[in-house]
């Protein structure tokens, strides 16, 4: 841990700002994160932040939460990890609770129903867009393409559990890459 102490209050406030001012999580949080964590406080270096972000992407859980937990841990140990995470989720919990309360009261309104009829179409557009852009980095050759198709078949038609799919994906990745290396050797 660093010599100069970061107060838990400071950690909380910084991640409250990061959570409250980024729309969409994931990549969208990077600029805000850089400003708070590097620009203002110099808590971590630029490279360290990118490493932490990379770790956040390849570990279970929401990327934004992983990043907050990791920075909190590096600065103030386990307590820091908890405080930074609580800061990151505060806005979501408060805002969504308020919104859900209001929405549940107006859901029978015809205009609201019509608006949501349109909104659901927009959600389809956003999901289609996300799938296309994510595919570019993930479906890189024939085996990954086949694996992706098999996952769709298994879940859509046979109701196989997503957890099982994840485990199979990890095992496939480990064995396929090992085989590849053995062949080239």
């Amino acid at each position: 841990m660093e010599k100069h102490q970061v107060s838990l209050g400071q950690l909380y406030i910084s991640f409250l700002k990061i959570g409250g001012l980024t729309f969409g999580g994931g990549l969208a949080m990077l600029p805000m994160l850089q400003r708070e964590v590097i620009g203002k406080h110099r808590w971590v270096s630029e490279e360290e932040l990118l490493d932490i972000y990379a770790i956040g992407q390849c570990t279970p859980g929401i990327i934004a939460i992983n990043t907050a937990s990791m920075i909190g841990y590096r600065k103030r140990g386990i307590l820091g990890s908890i405080v930074a995470t609580l800061g990151e989720i505060t806005t979501s919990v408060v805002l969504i609770t308020l919104l859900a309360t209001v929405l549940n009261q107006v859901e029978d309104n015809v205009l609201v129903q019509q608006a949501f009829g349109g909104i659901r179409v927009a959600v389809c557009v956003l999901i289609a867009q996300a799938i296309i852009s994510l595919s570019k980095k993930s479906i890189i050759d024939l085996p990954t393409f086949i694996l992706c198709c098999l996952t769709v078949l298994a879940t859509v038609f046979f109701e196989i559990s997503p957890i099982l799919c994840i485990v199979v994906g990890i095992l496939f990745g480990l064995s396929a890459q090992n085989l590849k290396r053995r062949k080239t050797r």
Binding site: I127, C149, V152, V156
Partner: peptide, 29 residues
Amino acid sequence: FVKDAFYGLRAVVIGLIIYAGSKVFLVAL
């Protein structure tokens, strides 16, 4: 190990998002 695992994991995650997406399409369209 992590890099190798992700080679397969990423493809599965896309498949899972397509599965979830198909449910949204079913409700919306």
